Simulated assay, not measured.
Amino acid sequence: MQMTQITNSKELLSTALQSRIIPNQEFLLQGSILDSAVDHLIHRLRGLCDTVDASPEQFHDLEVCLSLRQPTQTAPLMLRVRRALDRDSPFQLRYIGQPELDRSRPTLVRSSIDVGCTSTILDFLTELGCRLDFEYVSRGYIFRKGRMKITVSKIKAVPGKQQEIGSETVSQSYLVELSVLAPNGQDSIGDEMRIFAEQLKPLVQLEKIDYKRLGGLP
């Protein structure tokens, strides 16, 4: 009975992906800005994004990054588990595929699927054989412009058990990400993002990052 349910779920997921119902691609641009200039960027984003009169949404998350080595594939399966540290909300499991660095595209494109899950997800993934690669805390602001999402976040390391989570700052700058989740076949999104990114210059230079040159994936 359980095997039948799993098979049916896979068929439903496959059908949804083929019908372009599920947003399974992430278009991404990234950059950074010094702490001393981040207030200017926040002000610029408040003027450019939706809900100009409202304060930007804030977040404070712990993100755990795992990988699962597969004998038949050279690249590991990359998984993320995220949970909010400032509110009682479901855990989020995210699959991230290998980035496609097509020079003809203005953004990095990678497969991405997000699902809500329970607090036992880390135990479940560990039992499956997933290995912890790294974890970090991100705290900052979320802005939205139509279907685009812009995050401005301070990245902090996860220290030893005797210290408070997220107390160790990694750098003197903020990570800025411009992203859109969409189904396959919506390549025009990249041009929209490029035009928006141009409006943030010279405060921040958003670009597609080749993580292979950096020795790993984000």
Rank of each mutant, 00 (worst) to 15 (best):
L101V: 12
S138V: 15
D191L: 02
D114H: 01
V109M: 03
I42Q: 07
E198N: 09
S167W: 01
F27T: 04
V109L: 06
S179T: 14
Q172H: 05
E127C: 09
A37V: 02
L34H: 12
K212R: 15
L200M: 12
E207S: 07
Y174D: 12
C49A: 09
Q30E: 14
I33L: 13
Q2L: 11
S167E: 02
V158A: 04
Q98F: 01
S119T: 07
V38E: 14
L181G: 03
V180H: 00
S32D: 12
D61I: 05
D86L: 13
Y174S: 06
D88L: 07
I165C: 13
P99K: 04
E127W: 06
I155H: 09
D210A: 08
A75P: 01
L29E: 01
T74R: 11
E164I: 08
P202F: 06
D88C: 02
S188K: 06
L62A: 04
T7N: 14
L29V: 02
L66G: 05
D210Q: 08
R20H: 01
K156G: 00
D88T: 10
S32I: 01
A75M: 03
L217Q: 13
R82L: 11
I121G: 07
A54E: 13
D187R: 07
P218K: 12
G190M: 01
A182M: 00
S111P: 00
G166I: 07
I6S: 10
V81K: 11
L93E: 07
M148F: 03
A182C: 02
E127F: 05
G97V: 10
A182H: 00
S173P: 09
Y211P: 00
D53C: 05
L203R: 13
F27I: 01
L175P: 01
M148H: 08
V204Q: 04
S173A: 13
G129Q: 03
F59V: 04
E11I: 13
D35M: 06
G140S: 07
K201S: 11
Y211D: 04
D50G: 00
D53I: 10
Q199Y: 08
A54I: 06
L13D: 07
I22P: 02
V204D: 07
R69L: 15
T51N: 05
P76L: 05
G116K: 11
K10S: 09
I195K: 14
T151E: 08
S32Y: 08
P90S: 11
R83G: 05
V115P: 00
G160H: 05
E207C: 03
I22R: 02
G185K: 02
E57P: 04
E127G: 05
D187P: 00
I42L: 14
L68M: 11
L206S: 13
S167C: 11
T7Q: 10
L45F: 04
Q5I: 10
I142R: 09
A37K: 15
D133E: 15
E57D: 14
D191P: 00
V52D: 01
T72W: 15
D102V: 15
L93G: 10
K212P: 00
I113L: 11
T118N: 09
G116C: 03
N184A: 10
H60Y: 15
A37G: 03
V137K: 12
D210I: 06
I121T: 11
S14D: 08
I42N: 09
R139G: 12
P76Q: 13
F124L: 12
L125M: 09
E207P: 03
T51A: 07
I195P: 02
A197R: 01
A157G: 03
V38R: 10
